[in-house]
């Protein structure tokens, strides 16, 4: 099934708005006191309504448009593969940082990404040593950021 970009975006926005709207009602939209101060749910409730309205408008606009470019297309080409690999490497980097050391995790990420993007071994080694050393000197030594979670 082919879905239009605007329809998907509009539906996602409506879902987010609904997730905020019901808790807003529980927080209280109307004034809780006699001085007219609107409740904590007042602002998010009205913004949720706006988002729903605009989301529906976008969905309708998506349905009315006829150009083929507006469809969500997914081609698993080299570029999309590179995006996925970069995101996965970043996630692995953060996980590794949690269980080990920041500089070790950073060095491994830099080595991996340089290797993945086909940089030469010599460049990879030199760049990793220079870049990580600079991060260590500037941030750890000079600015005293210890990267402890």
């Amino acid at each position: 099934m082919r879905i239009k970009k605007d329809v998907l975006s509009g539906a996602a926005a409506v879902c987010i708005a609904v997730a905020f709207m019901f808790p807003s009602l529980r927080l209280g939209v109307a004034s809780l006191t006699s001085d007219g101060v609107p409740g904590p749910g007042f602002f998010p409730f009205f913004v949720s309504l706006l988002v729903i309205g605009l989301g529906v408008a976008l969905i309708l606009k998506g349905f009315l448009r006829k150009d083929a470019e507006e469809y969500v297309t997914f081609v698993f080409d080299d570029n999309s593969k590179n995006v996925f690999v970069t995101i996965a490497a970043f996630a692995a980097y953060l996980a590794l940082w949690r269980v080990s050391d920041f500089f070790l995790a950073s060095a491994l990420l830099v080595v991996f990404l340089n290797f993945y993007y086909a940089r030469s071994l010599k460049f990879n080694v030199v760049y990793t040593i220079v870049f990580i050393s600079m991060v260590y000197l500037v941030f750890y030594r000079f600015l005293r950021i210890y990267f402890v979670i």
């Binding site: 708005a17 602002f43 949720s48 706006l50 605009l54 408008a57």
Partner: peptide, 22 residues
């Protein structure tokens, strides 16, 4: 419409946390 929508989603997320008045 897209600009307004994305701006309003940003406004919604700005409400996360402590209510500024109460």
């Amino acid at each position: 419409v897209k600009g307004l929508l994305i701006g309003c989603v940003g406004l919604l997320l700005s409400t996360i946390g402590i209510d500024p008045i109460l």
